[in-house]
Amino acid sequence: MADLRYAYYPGCASQEITKEANEVTRKVAERLGIELHDMPGANCCGAGLITDYNYELSLALNARIFAQAEGMGMDIMTICSTCLMVMSTANRDLKKDPELLRRINALLSDAGLTYRGTVKVKQLLWVLAQDYGLERLKKAVTRPLDRLNIAPFYGCHSLRPSSALGFDDPQRPWSLEAVIKTLGAQAVEYTGKTKCCGFQADLVALDTAVGMTGMRLLSAKESSATCMVTPCPFCHINLDNYQGMAEKKISKKIDVPVFHLSQIVGLAMGMTPVELGLSRHLVSAEKILTGY
């Protein structure tokens, strides 16, 4: 099997608020033998907000990131679903429409850059489920998570718009469940798994946002999940950091610890809670992890 190398794009959130996701991803990748190459010059993808300002600016900023990866001769791997969605959408539009690509390259020309349209954008979940492969992942498991009932939380941007992402099935997704099962845990089926965590409205319509967060967590809990995993740091912010507020909003106790994808992989590979940076989470996972 060819060695796996990616231009690594953790995304802004995982460099600050959810730094644990970035740190654990690096450790896990190293152990699995996935090469992650830093992109010190990569800018923010815009998180969709730049699209709300000027679509061409959004395309140009993303094309700059792609041009860098093209220069490195690698595809991009991110650990943020929103980055994945924003970059994939931009990439789809640029690849589909040569005239648009030309217009955007004209904007890059002052900066001495061009994007040729050859890069692919992936996220850790896809890399594990496909490029690395589940069988190989299974071999890396030293401590199966057989006591965990995990609710897979896809949220929005790892599935939609499928016309840009084109990996998993937005109606009946399988990849997160497949990884969970490979790690030896049970994947819980529940209604909220492909819905929105609320993050994008946190600073604009907080009530709406936390209401959503609460509904997702509650539906997982009611389907007997003991914890949740998400491939997206933004979802994590709402599901974990805002869980307290969500409990107040829906007047129900939830108390469901939420993991980053990399953390459950690390856990199954024998990493300790300290190595996994779990102390940075607001909802403690201690009670479900006794013995790990």
């Binding site: 969709g48 699209t51 709300d52 300002y53 000027n54 679509y55 969605m85 929005c156 941007h157 599935l159 939609r160 718009p161 499928s162 937005p170 819905k195 929105c196 609320g198 993050f199 994008q200 409205a201 604009v204 319509a205 709406t208 946002a209 959503m212």
Partner: peptide, 28 residues
Amino acid sequence: WDCVRCVHCTEYCPKDAAPLEAIERLRA
């Protein structure tokens, strides 16, 4: 501005009307 960009609308629109794109354009 209350849209949370969940992309459900654009994904399930049977006519490719892309409502989210309209929202982004309105905002811009």
